[in-house]
Nucleic acid binder design. Structure first.
Lengths: 244, 244
DNA sequence: CGTGTATTTGATAAGAGTCAACTCCCGTGG
DNA sequence: CCACGGGAGTTGACTCTTATCAAATACACG
């Protein structure tokens, strides 16, 4: 991917959160991004590591996961194009989780030190990253509510609603039909369910006419009912949090 | 509480994360904190509100909760003395959750605008707050793993371990014996369990000799076994993240 | 001392997990 | 071109953890 395209995408990301001045834009263009492509399921970072670079997703999806000592996994975040993957590591030394490519992934990487200098020199950009980090924290909280207090059907419906909204925002897909990028096992790991049960619930959502499926293609048939089943309210995504 | 004591406590908080220069200290002292005391279970903030002040906890405990439309609750964070409660609202307009006092609480409140100016003028302090926000995010992720993938016994043991470590850090208590500030119903809401089941698991931890209880006083009898039952590893608390 | 909240206990039910087998799909190589 | 292999998805039978319902007890506070 062309470096000017990269700058363009990064800039658009910042602009979506905060108005950027001409000087800010010049500084973004000067950031030493390196583009890299990695295959699905490649580890970008492992728990305990101390990364020196920070990645911005240009194309594809990634996820954060945590493992228990006996190998059980919880997927705690899905990361989409236009998101910085490593904001943690901007200020924390040691990673507390793994980050793995969900699909084939194109990244723009920048040294953490450079990014740190950049946000000091450019407060508006720093604020944009703050917002990003805070929104991810908000999503964590919604997921906690989801896993802790909703039954399997609501949980899965909720994840489908979230995908719909976030994919649309990333312009990855029409809101009402998208390619689910995860296996049912991965869905289970994101929801605290077994893959077998994910399968049954998915089928039940389909037979009840809330969604249709063809392979991993998901189409929302009845958004109001899906949203109600999920108790989905997009407030936690803070989508209005733009250019304050 | 004396205003100089307040400044002292806030300063100590920042110093624990980053070295503060003389100028930084003067700026902290100049922040217009207002001390306020509120009763247990008072709401400090409700979902959807747009707060104008940010609170620092001087004494007591608070928690964040989210509610489902039909009234089920998930407690998503426990907040301890020395923590800023409203970092979200530094950069997000609308609160995505409620914040409620767990015990009687003494707060130092400062206008969000003042805090925002302060961190722009004082990058080290801004960085300290970044670290705080990122650590809370990390705790959210560990809780997701806890609720999503561990059984009731491990979950509860994990929360007890976390309390032990965090209380000790706040010097609220000896690490191995502390007053649990929550009802069993609240414990259940933090763990995605019913109060009845919390009660049974608590009793089983006691009869197995991992803990002892007298009213809400919890004493860790066998830390190694409790830690193992919890699969507790304090990495996610980023306690070493001090004065980089 | 009575009243309300928190805790404890028992009996039963239900949602989700486990185990195991089978099918489908897709890419690979003979 | 087709057989093969492996991963993902599907299905059924059964189990188990945790929820639910209900009642009793303990405890704090006025």
């Amino acid at each position: 991917m062309d470096i000017s395209t990269v700058t363009e995408k990064v800039l658009r990301k910042f602009e979506s959160r905060m108005a950027m001045g001409a000087d800010d834009r010049a500084q973004i263009a000067a950031l030493p991004f390196k583009v890299r492509t990695i295959d699905a399921s490649t580890y970008m970072l492992r728990e305990g590591q101390r990364p020196t670079r920070c990645a911005f997703i240009l194309e594809g999806l990634a996820y954060r996961q945590k493992l228990t000592p006996n190998g059980e996994r919880e997927i705690v975040s899905i990361l989409m194009p236009g998101e910085f993957v490593d904001l943690q590591n901007l200020f924390l030394d040691e990673s507390d989780h793994d980050i793995q490519a969900l699909t084939r992934l194109t990244l723009a990487e920048v040294p953490i030190a450079a990014l740190r200098l950049f946000i000091e020199a450019c407060p508006a950009a720093g604020q944009a990253l703050w917002i990003d980090a805070l929104v991810e924290s908000s999503i964590h909280r919604e997921w906690l509510l989801n896993v802790g207090r909703r039954n399997a059907r609501s949980r899965l419906a909720h994840l489908l609603c979230e995908f719909s909204v976030r994919f649309q925002k990333s312009t990855l897909a029409d809101a009402m039909a998208y390619e689910l990028p995860m296996t049912q096992e991965q869905l289970g790991d994101a929801l605290g369910l077994t893959p077998v049960h994910v399968n049954r619930v998915l089928k039940s959502l389909e037979t009840d006419g809330l969604i249709a499926r063809k392979k991993r293609q998901v189409s929302v048939i009845d958004w109001p009912r899906l949203r109600d089943a999920a108790e989905f309210n997009e407030r936690y995504l803070h989508l209005g949090q733009i250019r304050r």
